[in-house]
Structures are given as structure tokens and as C-alpha cells.
Amino acid sequence: MKRRTFLKSLAATGVATSLTGAGALTREARARKKINFGEVKSVRVDVLSETSWFDNDNLKKHMLDYGGAMTNQYNIPWDWDNAGGYMALLTVTTLEGKERKILLDSGWNNDWVDYIYEKNNIPAMLKSGEIEFMVISHWHLDHYWGIESTLKHKPDITMYAPKTYYPEDMALLKGAHLTAKNKEGEDVHVCKNDVPHTGKLILCDPDGEKDGIYNPMPGVAIRNFDVPILLRVRGENVFYFNVKDKGIVTVTGCCHPGLLSLFSYARKNFEGYKPYGCYGGLHITLFETWDPKFDDIIKGVKAFKIQKLACNHCTGWIWAEKAAAAGIPVVKGTDKYKSYKRQSTVATASNAFLTNGDHVIF
């Protein structure tokens, strides 16, 4: 597949739309009453792993070699050595001062996820119930295929996941070994799970439990956006936290609906809306290539007057660096990631990303 065809396929899956930041709002476009979902004292995000893969060119080559961005992700014999994973630990401090923990996503390569989990004491937190529940932001391989690494410590964990799953997604959750054929017609391992999920599974859609959201605890809202995503994936769950005396904090896995769409949804729907912070993969310059339209996202973020923006993963280092230079309050990372056994090939000395081992408090 040629590069031009590849880019067209990105557009066809909605990626080009999300890259502009405009996104594709669905049912939230309807007028609805303003939502009051409570408040929290603070929220801390610990970056467990933002390196879903280590080499962009390697990942892109596998997509191109097996049909491009519209290909079913389960039909690509990915390079296992390039696989990492995205996971974050969210610690919510309630108004009463109690700390409550949530796991966001479960990575890709089980070896990498196990390494990261041990480094951050996640197994003990899962076994003790200190981590109360987990959220799968979307069904992409780098956010979900490492699910065994979570379930082997807590098979009955309560889980929120998009309702827009495909048969392979649910098969993996229930316990399966999945393969894809390479160019020689040989079956190649792509993912496995030997520990079926036995806990409560809340399948999320844009209607939510009430008023379009899921409200697992005061001050915490989960919103599902039903948007098309590359590699035959649909729908993404996004966190909103209402931090007392500060405002709304958006936490996202990949921001496929579009960053400005997520901010716009909060402004339109949340009572007393005041923008404050953002964390996550923002899916802008995913492969570190620049387009002038990305300047519009910088202008849009500035217009929302976000006070603290922490980004990584699919945001693109180049966008984070340009955003910081333009005056957006980008939270700087540290060099902790250099102590990990592997690093991304695109990491730079600018520290414009929150990388593995970093954290941010809102």
C-alpha cells in the first residue's frame, strides 16, 4: 500500500477527523440538561506505560504490509518485539480525604505489562482490591491485548468497556489464544488470555446510565463516544473529573473523538463548567509528521484556557513541543523513562511528554 492510500484509509476510519481536534460528536449534539456528577478533592495520574510500541516505522510497516489502517487488527501478525502497552493508574482523593484507585487500560505485550506492573506494585493493589475497578478506553491492541496481566491477579475485577466490541475482543476477554497468518501463510501468535474475566462487565454506550454518563463515584464521570477508529475499532471511553475549586479534568487513552470535541462536550453538558486540566494520548501527530492544521488544535486548546495539559503516547512529541512553545501549559516529564529496560525511539530531550514513571496531580 502506498503512503497516499494509507493516509486516505486513515481518513476513512475517522482518524483524520480526530487529528484535526474537531472530532465526530454523535448524540451529545442534542440539547440536554446540565449534569452535576459531584466533586473530588484531587486526581493523580501515574504513567505506568505510555510506550505502546517502541518504533513508529516498525508499527507503520506492519499496518501497510497487511492492508493499511482499515485492516482488522487481529489479522496482522505484529512484531511482538515492538509491542509494549499503554496503562495508567488513577488515584482519586475524595472530598472526605479517602484515596480510591482506578486502572486505565491493560497494555499489549504481556511480558512488558508484567514488567511494568511489578515495577509499580500493581499486582498487590489488584489482589487486595485497592484498585477498585478498571476502564478499557477502547479495544485497540496496545490498550487491551495485555488483559491477562491484569486478570491473573484479579479475574473478578469490575470493568467498564465500550459496548462496540467485535467477536475477537470478547473471545480474548473470556479466554482465548488468537493468531494471524503471515505472508507465508503461517499462523503467528498475536495475543492470548488464559484467565477468563469473571467479574462485572459494564458495556458503555453514549446513553450512559443516566444523562449520557456513567458515574462510578462522586466527581468521576465516564463518557462513551461512539466514533470510528483505525484498525476496525469503534468507540472510546473518556474520564471526566470535577476537581473542587479547580474545574474539569479530562483523562483519555487515545482521544480518538478529538481533543476539542472532548472539551466541547464538557462545556456543553456539565453544570458550572470550568476547564482545568487534561491528561492522555491526544492522537495528533501520531507518526511525528506535521500538518499546518495541527496549529488549529493549539489555538483551540488556548481558547479553552486549559491550565495544565499533560500528554504522551499518540500525541506526538512534535505537537507537544510546539504546543509548549506556543504557550500552552504543557506539564514537563522527567528522565525516569531512561531507567526502564526499553525506550521509545522518538523520545527527545525536551521532556515535553510525561513518560514512563512520571505523574501529574490535578
Rank of each mutant, 00 (worst) to 15 (best):
residue 324 A to D: 02
residue 275 P to D: 13
residue 32 R to K: 11
residue 243 V to Q: 04
residue 182 N to D: 12
residue 207 D to M: 11
residue 288 E to D: 08
residue 248 I to Y: 02
residue 187 D to T: 09
residue 357 G to P: 13
residue 51 T to V: 12
residue 71 T to Q: 12
residue 65 D to A: 09
residue 340 Y to R: 04
residue 31 A to P: 01
residue 288 E to P: 07
residue 362 F to Y: 15
residue 40 V to C: 12
residue 115 Y to E: 12
residue 306 I to F: 01
residue 129 G to Q: 03
residue 307 Q to T: 05
residue 357 G to A: 12
residue 49 S to N: 13
residue 71 T to I: 04
residue 210 K to Q: 12
residue 21 G to N: 10
residue 119 K to D: 10
residue 202 I to L: 14
residue 134 M to V: 00
residue 302 K to L: 14
residue 61 K to F: 10
residue 337 Y to K: 06
residue 42 S to R: 10
residue 361 I to A: 12
residue 22 A to F: 13
residue 213 I to P: 04
residue 315 T to M: 01
residue 119 K to Q: 14
residue 160 Y to V: 02
residue 169 D to E: 07
residue 336 K to E: 10
residue 302 K to T: 11
residue 111 D to I: 13
residue 61 K to A: 13
residue 312 N to F: 06
residue 31 A to D: 10
residue 195 V to C: 01
residue 353 F to Y: 14
residue 318 I to N: 03
residue 244 K to N: 05
residue 319 W to D: 01
residue 247 G to K: 05
residue 311 C to D: 00
residue 113 V to G: 04
residue 106 S to C: 14
residue 38 G to T: 03
residue 342 R to T: 08
residue 245 D to T: 02
residue 207 D to L: 13
residue 311 C to E: 09
residue 161 A to T: 06
residue 148 E to R: 11
residue 166 Y to L: 14
residue 264 S to C: 04
residue 218 P to W: 02
residue 140 H to A: 08
residue 355 T to W: 13
residue 250 T to C: 03
residue 129 G to Y: 07
residue 360 V to E: 07
residue 162 P to S: 13
residue 186 E to D: 15
residue 340 Y to T: 01
residue 94 T to I: 06
residue 43 V to R: 00
residue 290 W to M: 09
residue 113 V to D: 01
residue 252 T to H: 00
residue 79 D to Q: 07
residue 45 V to G: 02
residue 92 V to G: 07
residue 354 L to D: 08
residue 7 L to N: 11
residue 8 K to A: 12
residue 344 S to D: 14
residue 314 C to D: 09
residue 106 S to Q: 06
residue 127 K to L: 05
residue 121 N to L: 11
residue 309 L to Y: 11
residue 313 H to L: 01
residue 271 E to T: 04
